[in-house]
Design a protein around this nucleic acid. Structure first.
Lengths: 207, 207
DNA sequence: TGTGATTGTTAGACGCAGTCCAATATTCGG
DNA sequence: CCGAATATTGGACTGCGTCTAACAATCACA
């Protein structure tokens, strides 16, 4: 989603403020006052920009919480494209998700979820999460459908995709709550999605 | 969620307006103007109540869309409680969902999803859906965990629950888009969740 | 026939997220 | 120096959701 490195703008007024500086200001305030207790205006004041600028970088206040997720999520489509046509597509999905999950070691989790308790972000994450998960599921479903040459009426591609994404999200939730002594996110995701993939691998066998 | 028939209130001022009448007014307006183009005030005017009364019956404007879902969703816990201890718990979950899905014949779907195109409700349903799905998943996860005597650290119960709920939701989406010629929702849900249940049945076997 | 308890309805005000637009600022290529 | 392109800003506006205090209608009980 970030501007492609090949197309850095070379005309027009340069950005005075960065997306990251707004995120930092928001994270500080969420820690001090909680998510609900912090207004967008306070964030912009601390970041030293105007309120309008905030909405230039984020479409909604809750988008700040998902910044880390959005970065990783953009990779999924690329990882899937790189999957060879020789292996079962559902295995390719599994592999792609595990590769991405490996980028989250046990020591550190995104602040929006790691500090969810003190920030009170859990409620807002839940309220604003479905569109993102659905977008990822749509990518996976389309990948499965085309690779397996299935009809658009077939329930199995969207069902498998939704199940895999949901299992991944559930695994991430357990991973966050496991505290600092946990292992990498990948091991949690693997335990969560392997059964799903196995089940659909069998169900999609005749296709 | 509806007031238990055994506890109809017999003291205090009786309700002048019903939840259903507000829903009807909202559905009409959503058809005429779309969801985003309709204000809560317009709904209350057509229903003949004050704006404050609306928020007595619905915590949010989007809750009107989920009224039908919320009614069915309350049944899940009861259906699970009725599952015998002799059969595998994951089969009990599968059976409970299919029983509930049978209440949705092919001819009629809830207006919020059936008319999603003309009402423009899809976006709002997506934005407000996750808390509801998560609540259902939590019920299923707790059922699986206790019936199987698993630890709270185990990823599998929440993962299986989330996957099953997501597959059900995906099936419902396909079902809605299939138009009037479709069969009952149950057949779609069955095709969607059977692979998930099979996969986790194997993964939970040794437990 | 009151009187209090209980519950439903209402008006009015408020904070804040999110949208929109017009004005201004800063860089570039020519 | 002049436009084209992009970033930033102020300011106004809509509408959701919250809150509080008042008011209305019913029942139980004396």
């Amino acid at each position: 989603m970030a501007a492609m490195s090949t197309t850095e703008r070379r005309v027009g007024r340069p950005r005075r403020s960065s997306r990251a500086s707004i995120e930092d200001a928001a994270a500080e305030l969420f820690l001090e006052q909680g998510y609900a207790g912090t207004t967008v205006e306070q964030i912009t004041q601390r970041a030293g920009v105007s309120r309008a600028t905030f909405f230039n970088y984020f479409a909604a206040k809750s988008d700040v919480l998902w910044s880390s997720f959005d970065e990783s999520a953009g990779r999924l489509r690329d990882e899937l494209r790189a999957v060879g046509t020789d292996r079962p597509p559902i295995d390719g999905v599994r592999q792609a998700l595990l590769v991405i999950a490996q980028d989250f070691p046990g020591e550190s989790a995104p602040w929006a979820v790691a500090e969810a308790e003190t920030m009170g972000t859990a409620e807002e994450l839940g309220a604003s999460g479905l569109p993102r998960f659905a977008a990822q599921a749509a990518v996976i479903a389309e990948f499965l459908r085309t690779r397996l040459s299935l009809s658009r009426d077939d329930v199995r591609p969207p069902a498998a995709a939704a199940a895999i994404v949901a299992a991944t999200a559930a695994a991430a939730g357990v991973w966050v709550n496991a505290g600092a002594s946990r292992g990498s996110l990948a091991s949690y995701v693997e335990a969560a999605i392997t059964p799903v993939c196995a089940g659909f691998a069998a169900a999609l066998d005749g296709a």
